[in-house]
Write a protein that binds this DNA or RNA. Structure first.
Length: 263
DNA sequence: ATGGCCAATATGATTGGA
């Protein structure tokens, strides 16, 4: 089974890119972030015609997440538990059945948090605390679980071209990285880091200042695996070349391969 | 790490992104 994640920065602007990449990489499940439209505006037919089922949690103008799956969904959960007043569309979770059992996947769009002297940063930290609480509960199920998405977290200095330039940024502050580590310490595996120690592996390059051309990138899109998923991990990768396509998203896809058979 | 971008909005300027 292949599972992937991609912040597409508007699904309507990236429909053709996503179709091309799906044909190329052939994921069984793809988590999307920043679809930037309401549910009814999602171009469903473009993906249903490729054999994907869709679970969409959209929002007008901003945010929005979705999951595409070749396997049919058993359950879908909309919204991260823990705060009924949070109206941002940043979380959707689904389960599918395989011959070897259930697989649970979440598509996550964690808040950016800048500027850090505003309530945007406290919202980010609270959101991360909610995510930790949810993750700890889910671990008790002892299922293969993949928490995939745009975390807006640079985990270590090896994950950014110029660490010094990011020390005061919400993506790299100690409190942010501390909360990300709490996820790995409770038992989740960062799939990319489980397969390589290479530096300079990035998933985002800013549109501005020629960041792509200079390879000024950051690694902020992650796939965290429960022990039952990590035990079946056979490979992981970043589709960097997609950033060089015409009119690209500023993020590129990340994918994993699991030793879980699909019909 | 900011000179340089991009997307959505009844839009021609503003907000958000990272």
């Amino acid at each position: 089974m292949r599972v992937a994640t991609w912040n597409v920065n508007s699904i309507r602007q990236r429909t053709d890119h996503l179709r091309a990449w799906l044909a190329e990489r052939q994921p069984d499940i793809a988590c999307l972030q920043e679809i930037k439209c309401v549910d009814d505006a999602f171009p469903r037919e473009a993906f249903e015609s490729l054999g994907y089922n869709l679970a969409v949690h959209g929002q007008k103008t901003f945010n929005g997440v979705a999951i595409l799956s070749k396997l049919k969904f058993d359950e879908v959960v909309i919204g991260l538990p823990g705060d009924d007043t949070d109206d941002h569309a940043r979380f959707i979770e689904a389960t599918v059945s395989t011959p070897s059992g259930v697989v649970r996947v979440a598509s996550i769009y964690l808040p950016n948090g800048n500027p850090t002297n505003t309530d945007k940063y406290s919202y980010k930290l609270k959101w991360m605390d909610r995510l930790s609480h949810y993750a700890k509960e889910r671990l008790k199920l002892e299922e293969p679980l993949i928490l995939a998405g745009d975390y807006n977290v640079i985990p270590t200095p090896d994950d950014v071209h110029n660490p010094a330039a990011w020390v005061n940024d919400a993506l790299f502050l100690p409190q942010t990285r501390e909360r990300f580590r709490s996820l790995t310490h409770m038992g989740f595996t960062d799939a990319i880091r489980a397969t390589t120690d290479d530096r300079g592996l990035y998933t985002f390059w800013d549109y501005q200042a020629g960041a792509w051309q200079k390879n000024w990138g950051i690694r902020i899109d992650h796939m965290l695996l429960s022990p039952q998923a990590a035990d079946r991990l056979t490979g992981a990768g970043i589709d960097k070349h997609v950033r060089s396509w015409e009119k690209p998203s500023d993020h590129v896809p990340v994918y994993i391969d699991l030793a879980i058979g699909v019909p």
